[in-house]
Nucleic acid binder design. Structure first.
Lengths: 270, 270
DNA sequence: CGTCGCCTTGAGGAACTTCAATCAGGGTGG
DNA sequence: CCACCCTGATTGAAGTTCCTCAAGGCGACG
């Protein structure tokens, strides 16, 4: 689970969580990492709750979170909003803007953030010249898509409790990968209302479910710090399988079928 | 809305709905279309409700629906299933397998289907040689991702009625693009249970909501044929905006901000 | 000390589910 | 041709989950 020991490696910008992610996910090596790092402009500091990309507006830059939390906000015509993703350091905010510079979903910070950006045409040119960059981008997109499918399943099938448990498991895993969680503890710097917007639940209900997880000893909260006391139970309840996050996709590509699926039932016999 | 008049054009396989989609979406032209068409193997005929790709198993081929309906099935560890997408002629089933040959979601036919396939490495090689193919694949992926985000919003924010109305609007639009809908009428060859698995609702509830749409004269059903009697009301209720389907992305890329978004409120002021 | 944002709690209601039974249509075997 | 069966649509009734509204509490900050 702790994938972050092999970090030390010389070169520019390797404290950069985006670089960490690319190395972990896509196995990118030195020349490409440096090229990408140099395309990223100077990080911009932004306050909490400010827009990075406004919904419906053209974007010619791909944004990357280096520090802080942000989210993708999908606005419905009548004003309701669904958070389509929580973005943590290392995450690309709007990869789809590489091909679709317009969209109904915006990007906004949740906490104060440090955000870097790449021009989309510059990135596409780099990818066209450099196949392993192209592959890395393809992988990033595919993994993002998997995450969306998983969240769909959460929204469609899972109860509020399962869904919240799933989110916490996912956050622990993702934050661990960029060294932002230790000993099952991490900072959860967002409000219950925002959690509700991710889960498709009301604030009140999020509160009650969190509370029940707390009183049952599955998690502990103090201030903005959350610790998962019983990961195994939480994972079990959530039906959480970290595979879809693909923090180890390199070996995976060469591996055999996944454990637990060898005897998977026919799709229509369940 | 009828985007399919300019079809006549010489060349191989242009009755192929996949080719139609690629032309519409990515503006691909003759040499690339022919190259793609030649990579696609001989279409395979498959019966209704059979697996195309089993969840958890390695896939080295990208599948394309040429005829019939299929779906992406996401299995939860405990056996519940969520349909992550309905696939109609012209749709790519598992584009993400280009980069991630393993996954927790399978592909299965719903009706009898004709399905073609490409080897993933062959396709990647073609993309590496041919930038406009690479762009087309990128676009396909981005559009798919947009669809997932929209469905997330449906599952998270919209009521059963809104969600169903949204699905019907979406289907009309997508089917129209491949000439499978005429006069607001199309064939809906799937059961209410399957609709429920898409919407995250029980069969019984789907039945009741469909019924209310029918009695209010918004839609008509006879056998497997569905006609939308009052598209405007349906669209209004659903909050449906076809933009995310990107059937016209070429012009869109060059266009200004979208209508209705110029005055979009701040993400946090709603 | 007052205010503001956020968490918490209670009560009542709406949306949706589950269970169970019935109905309608199409195909099959006799 | 008819009895049978199987799938899928339909209906009713009872129960859960989650929502809305509304009020308090608590800590941070000016």
């Amino acid at each position: 689970m702790s994938l972050t020991q092999q970090l030390p490696s010389p070169g520019a910008g390797h404290d950069n969580p985006f670089v960490i992610r690319l190395r972990l996910l896509a196995g990118l090596e030195e020349p490409e990492l440096a090229a990408l790092d140099s395309l990223l402009g100077v990080p911009r500091r932004m306050g909490a709750r400010t827009e990075i990309v406004r919904a419906g507006q053209r974007t010619d830059r791909i944004h990357v979170i280096l520090d802080g939390w942000a989210c993708r906000v999908h606005l419905l015509p009548d004003g309701r909003r669904q958070l389509a993703a929580l973005l943590i350091p290392g995450d690309v905010c709007n990869l789809d803007a590489l091909y679709l510079p317009f969209g109904e979903t915006g990007i906004a910070t949740l906490t104060s953030c440090s955000v870097a950006a790449v021009d989309r045409t510059a990135l596409r040119r780099l990818a066209a010249r450099n196949p392993s960059v192209a592959d890395a981008l393809g992988l990033l997109g595919a993994v993002e898509s998997r995450g969306l499918v998983e969240r769909n399943a959460c929204l469609g099938c899972r109860s509020a409790r399962e869904h919240l448990a799933h989110l916490l498991c996912e956050l622990l895993t993702r934050l661990s990968a960029v060294s932002l969680a230790k000993d099952y503890r991490f900072t959860l710097p967002i409000t219950q209302e925002e959690i509700g917007a991710v889960l498709g639940l009301s604030t009140v209900h999020v509160n009650r479910v969190l509370q029940s997880l707390r009183t049952e000893g599955l998690i502990e909260q103090s201030g903005h710090s959350l610790t998962i006391c019983d990961l195994e139970s939480l994972r079990q309840e959530a039906g959480f399988r970290p595979d879809y996050l693909h923090f180890d996709s390199i070996d995976r590509t060469a591996a055999g079928p996944r454990a637990g699926f060898d005897t998977a039932p026919n799709l229509f016999d369940c």
